[in-house]
């Protein structure tokens, strides 16, 4: 992995340096950097560098990226969709789009993680819009803590399913803003960047989205175990 990383990093250093290869002066400038880069393992490279390395033919860079990004993408999709298989499909689809984006990825536009939040969020909204139905409990993803009792696990699944179904009936932008803010814990400026809207619009969407959720789930407090809330 270290060797793979060094080649890709040296290549990207060359490209960033203006592409003057193969003049002697250029080689003299790049080679020391190349030697320094030889010691950089893939695990220490940024997401963007890994993506560039993958685009340059370093397959191990994609595996490192998947190791970093897939858990988050899968968790995000699971929280929104409450469906094990659908969440896996979304996460796989999102990563596939990232691989295809690699050759034309442009630095400075967005962080890879931010880009992925947007893609997963959009794919989930598409999926919710198609379904607009309650997810069967047996399809709901496993809860986080396997040490929970069976009753607690059932409760968690019921809550996940209820929230996902309610999100499906919200206007898309509201559902997206609420999920990014309250399920992913992103800041309003981050959400504004992901959704390409102003921070004030994010605040408005999340507030209206939460009110709409309360309207939809009113009367289900006991069922969801929030009777004392």
């Amino acid at each position: 992995m270290v060797v793979a990383g060094m080649v890709a990093a040296a290549n990207s250093a060359f490209v960033a340096g203006g592409g003057c290869w193969p003049s002697a002066r250029c080689r003299a400038a790049v080679m020391p950097l190349r030697l320094v880069m030889m010691t950089v393992p893939l695990t220490d490279m940024t997401d963007a560098d890994l993506l560039r390395a993958y685009a340059n033919g370093t397959g191990a860079a994609a595996e490192e990226l998947a190791r970093r990004l897939l858990p988050g993408a899968l968790a995000q999709a699971t929280r929104m969709l409450a469906d094990r298989a659908a969440a896996e499909d979304v996460a796989q689809d999102a990563l596939m789009r990232l691989w295809r984006q690699a050759p034309i990825w442009r630095d400075g536009e967005a962080q890879v993680s931010t880009w992925l939040y947007r893609v997963v969020s959009n794919l989930c909204i598409d999926d919710l819009r198609k379904r607009k139905r309650n997810v069967p409990l047996d399809a709901v993803a496993d809860p986080a803590d396997p040490r929970e009792s069976a009753a607690d696990q059932l409760q968690t699944r019921a809550r996940l399913s209820a929230l996902s179904a309610a999100l499906a009936h919200l206007p898309e932008r509201q559902a997206q803003a609420v999920a990014l803010r309250h399920l992913e814990g992103l800041s309003n400026p981050e959400i504004a960047e992901i959704m390409d809207i102003s921070v004030r619009s994010v605040e408005s969407l999340t507030a209206r989205g939460k009110r709409a959720l309360a309207d939809q789930l009113a009367g289900r407090r006991a069922e969801l175990g929030y009777d004392d809330a």
């Binding site: 858990p71 309250h182 814990g185 939460k210 407090r221």
Partner: peptide
């Protein structure tokens, strides 16, 4: 008020849910 509180609690609980591939 109760429904709003329930939504806050529900969002917090679902936000804790994670899953490893």
């Amino acid at each position: 008020d109760k429904d709003d509180a329930m939504i806050d609690a529900l969002l917090q609980d679902v936000a804790k849910i994670s899953r490893e591939p």
